[in-house]
Simulated scan of single mutants.
Amino acid sequence: MKSPGGLNLTAATASNLVDTLEAWPEDCQISLAGFTYDRIYGPTDAQTRLVWLAKCDRWNGEFFPQPYKQLAKTLHDMGHEADARQVLITLACKLRQEARTKLRITPNGDLSTGLHSIWRDILRLCLGGKDSISLLLTAHGYKPQRSLYALILLFAAATFPAQWAWDEGSFAPNSGPILLSEGWQELARDDDIQNPAAEWANRNAIPGKDWETFNRYAYAADVVIPIVEFGQTEAWAPSTERGLWGYHLWWLRWGFTILGWIVTALGAAALTGLIRRD
């Protein structure tokens, strides 16, 4: 039904939707809230249909999510799984954007309102960051495999500073008694030994010096992947005083650990359905 200033299809029903993008008027408001249909005869790719919905998801300034859910359902029933998923991802992004927009307060010169507006802006900024991370790592729960890819990238990234710190001799046994022992002190003070840790870990050396062998991949896994324990971080610790990479790794490992927990937690939440998808 076409009303003054717009085309209102609210609660309309059709078995088949036969159209092209050009069939929809450009110069009037269109409402598809509650409009249902079983099949689409026309473009069914997500990119084209999302352009179509962008013209029809608001009525008098109010956002309506139902047209996106209806399109996703129809595409799913027609067998277009990837396109249906993309529509739902776009809907999740729009719902979060709407939630952030509703938090906005326009200052009116009043001090209390101004302070409240600043607080809301900070909250919107935090929510925006959280939503961006959720989109990047799980596509708001629709692509949890992204978190696995991110974890693999973190693991790979952590191996490089670990190896560089080891090669420059910036690791030491992670044991107080060993660090205070005469054997370690002798190695650490010997200017002819570039890597005391490697010497200490050499199982062919003097009995008593043998220690856990360093492996950059196992060390990176210990740092990045929660719960996993290969014994590397228990055996070795980077020193902030022996070299540049040891100093950097001392701080980087905390960042890798925090990011590993975030990525793993979001991935697990997406897999178990804890991330709200609608």
Rank of each mutant, 00 (worst) to 15 (best):
L21T: 09
L71S: 10
G79E: 04
L7A: 07
A72R: 03
Y68G: 01
A54V: 00
T74E: 02
A46T: 01
K55W: 08
G79N: 06
D57V: 09
D77V: 08
L9T: 00
Y68F: 09
A12E: 07
R49I: 00
D19C: 15
G34T: 05
K69V: 09
R49V: 06
D27A: 04
K55G: 04
Q47N: 09
C56K: 14
L53M: 04
A12F: 09
Q70V: 13
Y37S: 01
T44H: 08
L75A: 07
A33Y: 11
A72N: 02
T13M: 11
E22W: 10
D19Y: 14
C56H: 10
P67Y: 04
F64C: 03
F64P: 00
Q29N: 08
P43V: 05
K73S: 10
W59A: 07
A46E: 00
K73D: 10
Y41I: 15
A54E: 12
A11M: 13
Q47K: 15
I40S: 03
T20A: 15
D77R: 13
L17I: 03
A33N: 12
C56F: 04
R39L: 12
I40R: 07
A46H: 05
A14W: 09
T36I: 10
I40K: 06
P65G: 05
A23R: 15
E22L: 12
S31G: 05
Y68K: 04
G42C: 06
N60L: 09
F35Q: 06
A11K: 12
P43H: 06
A23T: 14
N16A: 11
T10C: 07
W24V: 04
G42D: 01
W52S: 13
A12T: 11
M78K: 11
Q47E: 14
L71I: 04
I40D: 01
A33T: 12
D19W: 13
F64G: 03
I30T: 03
A46M: 02
D19I: 15
D38W: 05
S31C: 08
G6A: 03
E62Q: 15
P25R: 05
L32K: 10
I30K: 02
T20L: 13
A11H: 13
R58Y: 02
K55P: 00
K69M: 14
G34V: 03
D45Q: 10
Q29M: 10
W59R: 03
K69C: 14
E22Q: 13
K69G: 14
E26G: 14
W52Y: 11
Y41C: 13
L50Y: 11
H76N: 14
W59K: 04
C56N: 13
C28G: 08
Y37D: 00
L7R: 08
E22H: 11
K55C: 06
L17C: 00
A11D: 13
T44A: 11
K69W: 14
A11C: 11
E22F: 05
R39M: 12
D45M: 06
L7D: 07
S31I: 06
P25I: 02
